[in-house]
């Protein structure tokens, strides 16, 4: 029953990904990325991960898209030529051969597919991940976390609390980094700066 929803979503996901790969118009690519995130979020919802789905929808489809659009508004909008979305936007670039990347990707993909053959099947309730540790997180989190109904939140705040701390640190790092990168050098430094060409390498 579920398959009637899942299969179209998966098909759409694949189609979106391929479109992003082929499209040359950056605005369109960004929009398709947003759509991709949104489709992923839908599938995550079906896969019983509502927390991740909501976050992905908000962060992936929302914030990322906004950031990218903001960047695009500061930078050229087209990858090369201007104009509306047209067949030209899907042209292959003559300068670069896509063969090598394609080869690498194929090999990597085949390796991964090879790896799936011994994986527990999708949804298998006896997969190691479902039976270990025992008692499971769902069971254990109840007494430990005073019965917080959302196990994901409970685990985030308790057992893997330090991941959450690290996550905060990551955001903080990125914040500092963006500030560092984008902050203008407000006052001109002494003339010594201009004559320094430390990293220059002709």
């Amino acid at each position: 029953m579920m398959d009637f929803i899942v299969i179209p979503i998966l098909a759409l996901l694949a189609a979106t990904a391929v479109t992003v790969a082929r499209i040359r118009n950056l605005w369109a690519a960004v929009m398709f990325t947003g759509i991709y995130s949104f489709l992923s979020a839908s599938w995550m919802l079906i896969l019983d991960a509502p927390d991740v789905a909501f976050t992905e929808a908000a962060v992936g489809a929302g914030i990322t898209t906004i950031l990218m659009l903001a960047t695009l508004s500061l930078t050229p909008r087209r990858q090369r030529k201007s104009g509306r979305l047209s067949s030209e936007d899907f042209e292959e670039r003559p300068s670069k051969s896509p063969l090598l990347p394609l080869l690498i990707v194929t090999i990597t993909g085949c390796a991964l597919v090879y790896g799936t053959f011994d994986m527990p099947h999708f949804g298998d309730p006896n997969a190691p991940i479902q039976v270990y540790p025992n008692p499971s997180f769902v069971e254990k989190s109840q007494p430990d976390m005073h019965g917080l109904p959302n196990v994901v939140t409970a685990v985030l705040a308790s057992y893997r609390g330090y991941d959450t701390l690290g996550e905060t640190a990551v955001i903080f790092t990125a914040g500092i980094a963006v500030l560092l990168i984008l902050r203008k050098n407000t006052d001109d430094q002494s003339s010594s700066e201009s004559q320094s060409v430390t990293g220059e390498n002709a």
Partner: peptide, 15 residues
């Protein structure tokens, strides 16, 4: 964490 901060640090070079 270490990677993100090192990207930022590297980008501060003069050129």
């Amino acid at each position: 964490i270490s990677s993100l901060s090192s990207y930022a640090l590297i980008s501060l070079g003069k050129t």
